[in-house]
Design a protein around this nucleic acid. Structure first.
Lengths: 231, 231
DNA sequence: GTTTGTGAAAGGATTCACAGCA
DNA sequence: TGCTGTGAATCCTTTCACAAAC
């Protein structure tokens, strides 16, 4: 999410009226479900069926899609191919974005080798690491570059997204360098809160956070079960 | 988030009045910031300073903490140690939870080797993989077990959280087996939507989703920049 | 008959702004 | 004076329920 909670307005000119953040966060899920349907040969789908596949309610799905425009047919459903196209274009997946991955430790290597990037429109343009000992190593077909090369790499490769997979120490430094090099979208796997200037988006993925949230719910379920027993 | 959007009520008996989901999701962030402060020797902190470190507004932080009770001192701030204790106990981190990790591919191995588990109260009790060729391998000090051993492992080790790091294909099968074995909290790294019975919590972490959300914002920023240029 | 698209209602979350306490 | 805790206001999201369209 952006720093401002406002909806993504994009007004004026020939702009879309603006898609709520909560909706944007679900569009990738719909997109994946649609691709799965297309692979199986389905050409149309109802809001009910698509919602089921995406794990949401059908009313929510329809409201979400209504923000992109009116692309369904009453009494029939949505055309799978058409929806894929409209969601992709809303998400800006018409172009291939270049990504630079910083940190080639355990996690960084796993990410570099993961299919998730090429999946849809993302290209790992370069690997970077602060550790001189790692520079020159070849990981997933790319030679690891030193941190100093960031500005050049970003410029020459047209990088617009930075992925941070370093330890918490040093994540802020890496972030500052990315921002200085002109990157305005950052995906942070390091367990640290990054401070960034306005206009830069950061999304954080944190294993430990997720586990702790599950812990809360598990804890609560255990407490409820105890109540039942003692009742 | 749970399947129902309601707040985590936990009423009756000696229960906390209930902490909103949005708050629960931020508590781990506060906790980390507090640990960092403690490591540096700070013993008290104001809502302003803690909020800054956690990357949120101070009013939001205070409202969040107010749901756990009244543990601050007006004119002074919060006692770091006391807050750590109360947040930890709210999150159910008083006990060590046992985790089973399914899938020891690229990502699974990175997760197994990651410090994020031992970090605070989590223990990887076992590694499991569906591929017979991997069974017996030793990863991060643990021998990889076959999928069939899940029920036994869950029972004997008291596992309450399952982490799925398999490819999308097979994720649902693994999920079903985890649920059948009695696991009610699942962290899913596979790019798939899991269907689970009520009472089971699933949290999903998806690289590709996150990138697509960033893509949306980047796309929007580019469109805005174009407008400025043509104005 | 079926299914979308959407106003209106309900429910959460965030922000404001200030009373109350140290 | 400084800072927390919290009602009230605002904003965002979800859900409901049904008219319109096929």
């Amino acid at each position: 999410m952006s720093e401002q909670g406002s909806r993504a307005v994009g007004r004026a000119g020939a702009g879309r009226p603006g898609v709520p953040n909560a909706t944007v966060a679900r569009l990738p899920v719909y997109l994946r479900a649609l691709h799965a349907l297309a692979d199986v040969g389905r050409t149309t789908v109802s809001s009910e069926a698509l919602a089921e596949a995406a794990g949401v309610g059908s009313a929510k799905l329809r409201k979400d899609l209504s923000h992109l425009g009116s692309y369904g047919t009453r009494g029939v459903g949505y055309d799978v191919g058409e929806l894929v196209h409209h969601i992709s274009s809303t998400l800006g997946l018409g172009q291939r974005w270049s990504v630079v991955l910083v940190g080639v430790g355990n996690l960084g290597q796993a990410l570099a080798g993961y299919g998730g990037f090429d999946d849809r429109g993302f290209r790992v343009a370069a690997l970077v690491d602060a550790d001189p000992a790692r520079v020159g190593e070849v990981v997933a077909g790319l030679t690891v570059l030193p941190l100093q090369d960031l500005p050049r790499v970003v410029r020459e490769q047209g990088v617009s997204i930075g992925v941070i997979a370093t330890p918490a120490t040093g994540a802020q430094d890496v972030c500052d360098r990315l921002v200085a090099a002109g990157v305005r979208s950052i995906l942070n796997f390091a367990p640290a809160v990054l401070q960034v200037p306005p206009g830069v988006d950061v999304r954080r993925v944190d294993l430990s956070n997720e586990l702790q949230i599950l812990s809360f719910h598990e804890h609560r379920k255990a407490a409820l079960a105890d109540q039942v027993v003692s009742a």
